[in-house]
Computed example of a mutant assay.
Amino acid sequence: MRRVFEEELKSLHAHFLKMGVLVNEAIQKSVDAFVTHDKELAQQVIDEDAAINALENELELECFELIALQQPVTTDLRKIVTVMKASADLERIGDHAVSIAKSTIKVKGKKHDADIETAIAETALKVMGMVKEVLDAYVVLDVERAREIAARDTEIDAAAKNIYENCIEQMKQDPEIILGGTNYMRISTYLERIGDYVTNISEWIIYLDSGEVVELNVHHKI
């Protein structure tokens, strides 16, 4: 029975990592679509989100079945709970990638601001790096790396706030950029929230390792 349980746990983690790959691709595509003003690529992100949602539903079902059928002990239960909670955070990250894609479509044809778009692109690259690294930390159960990644969320918060304030200032000076600026502000908020969910996953890595429930960067929790 133990061998069967271990195999099912491995399958669970494999599905989680597959979901992580899909989410990372969604962020990459949504950011690329924003940078290049590619409406078709943005639509692709929206269309492909169903696969991420389906994986999250499958993972949740697998977790419940493992708990019900195998009655895992404390350490094993932590592994299952971590996958279930972290996959929910991944799904929300995917949702924000979709939101970025939708805002990219809305901003197409509107007046642009190159400086703000550059700031958004730079922030997005940092966020993408955090998502990839937190998944890597999860694979090897690197608690220190998880803490370091979560600490970088303050940088994302500051960048998002700066973009937001720049948008307000530009809209005051040029009414023609109001529609585009509103979408820039939305995108900066989505990036900031992705950073929050990365922090959540970092917390689950710590929980998986020690059973300790911690709150990192509690200044802004979603």
Score class of each variant (00 low, 15 high):
K85H: 09
D174Q: 07
L69P: 05
L208K: 11
E48I: 00
T75R: 10
I156F: 01
K85A: 10
A88K: 05
E7H: 15
G195A: 09
R92Q: 13
I100S: 13
G94T: 01
K172D: 14
I46D: 05
E165W: 05
L90D: 04
A42T: 01
E25H: 10
A33G: 14
I67S: 11
I105Y: 07
I177R: 10
T123R: 01
I178L: 12
K29G: 08
V143K: 14
K79L: 13
N183F: 02
K10G: 13
E60F: 08
E192C: 07
E203C: 09
K161W: 06
A54V: 01
L191Q: 05
D89N: 10
M130Y: 06
L61C: 07
M171T: 03
S202D: 09
V127L: 10
I105F: 03
E169R: 15
L9A: 13
V98S: 10
I205C: 06
F5L: 12
V218Q: 02
G94N: 05
S30C: 11
R193D: 07
S103C: 12
S210G: 15
I105S: 08
L191G: 06
T36R: 00
L9C: 09
P72V: 02
K39V: 15
Q28S: 14
M128S: 15
S87K: 06
I120W: 02
T118V: 00
I100G: 10
N217C: 11
S188G: 11
T123G: 05
V23A: 06
T189V: 02
T123D: 07
E56S: 12
R152Y: 08
D47T: 07
D196M: 09
I149R: 06
D153I: 02
A86W: 03
A33C: 10
D38V: 00
R3K: 11
A151E: 15
A137M: 07
V98D: 11
T189C: 10
D95L: 04
Y207H: 07
W204H: 09
M171S: 04
I100R: 08
D47Y: 04
K111I: 10
V21W: 05
N53P: 06
A68T: 02
A124L: 06
S99W: 07
A146Y: 03
K18L: 12
E203Y: 02
E58C: 00
S99G: 14
V213I: 13
T75K: 08
L208T: 02
D49W: 06
E169T: 03
T154A: 13
N57F: 12
R92E: 14
H220L: 04
I67Q: 12
E8S: 13
E117T: 00
D113W: 04
G109C: 08
V23D: 04
A54N: 13
P175L: 06
P175S: 08
P72N: 09
V214S: 01
A119R: 11
A86E: 04
I194Y: 03
E7T: 03
R92G: 10
T154D: 15
H220Y: 07
T36H: 10
K110R: 14
V214Q: 09
T154K: 06
R147S: 11
H112S: 08
E192Y: 02
L9V: 08
L77R: 01
L66F: 08
E192L: 03
L125G: 15
V127I: 06
V140M: 12
D142G: 08
L216F: 07
I46R: 12
S103P: 08
K172R: 14
Y184C: 12
R92T: 03
